[in-house]
């Protein structure tokens, strides 16, 4: 058999093999375990609930909230303008364009942070950028943004500023009371009482 015919037969055989094997659709991971560890420790994927509240109120067009809970839970309550992509179907093709893009900032949330973090890790492994996790999830959202607790009078001013913002945000987002509270003017009575220690008695008796 001539060289030419050997080459042609080789091509034919290889073609038959490639026609019969299933196509390899697995994509190699974009991140190694070490890369992932660095990302997770950096916690750069976290955004605070306060930031999210601020973006919602100021109607930031780059914000895209993604609810990874079940459709039932989503129906019961969801953040304004959020879309529902349950964790179980996050790999479906129809969501690829939403999750793999460089324009908007996707903020994932669930009740806690477990499911949203699971979703984030899957997306990160696929190499998708611009996905973030709302710190504390909806539970924290309710505790802090919707029903903020007044800080104790001894708290630093930043705590009051935060409380004021949360109180206002809560009003804007349909939560509890809408009355903003400013830090109370510190009066004399606010001064911590000085509790004087009793003087130690001189040891009774003697040597």
């Amino acid at each position: 058999m001539s060289t030419r015919n050997i080459i042609f037969s080789g091509m034919f055989l290889l073609g038959m093999v490639i026609a019969m094997v299933p196509e390899n659709t697995t994509k190699p991971y974009k991140l190694t375990a070490e890369d992932m560890l660095v990302e997770v420790q950096g916690a750069a994927e976290m955004v605070s609930a306060d930031d999210v509240a601020h973006w919602i109120i100021s109607q930031d067009p780059s914000l895209q909230l993604i609810d990874v809970r079940s459709p039932d839970e989503f129906q019961t309550y969801h953040l304004a303008n959020a879309i529902n992509i349950p964790l179980s179907v996050i790999l479906k093709d129809e969501y690829q364009d939403l999750l793999d893009q460089g324009v908007k900032m996707n903020v994932l949330y669930s009740n806690g942070t477990l499911n949203s973090h699971q979703a984030w890790m899957i997306l990160r492994q696929l190499g998708f950028e611009n996905n973030y996790v709302m710190q504390g999830g909806l539970n924290y959202w309710f505790d802090t943004i919707m029903n903020p607790q007044a800080p104790s009078v001894y708290s630093p001013d930043e705590e009051f500023a935060k409380y004021d913002f949360r109180k206002a945000a809560s009003g804007a987002l349909g939560g509890g009371g809408a009355v903003a509270l400013t830090a109370p003017a510190k009066t004399k009575s606010d001064k911590p009482k000085v509790i004087r220690k009793k003087k130690k008695k001189a040891p009774a008796g003697g040597c």
Partner: peptide, 9 residues
């Protein structure tokens, strides 16, 4: 599939 197409080519 890409493989069948390759074989046809």
């Amino acid at each position: 599939s890409g493989g069948v197409m390759a074989f046809l080519v």
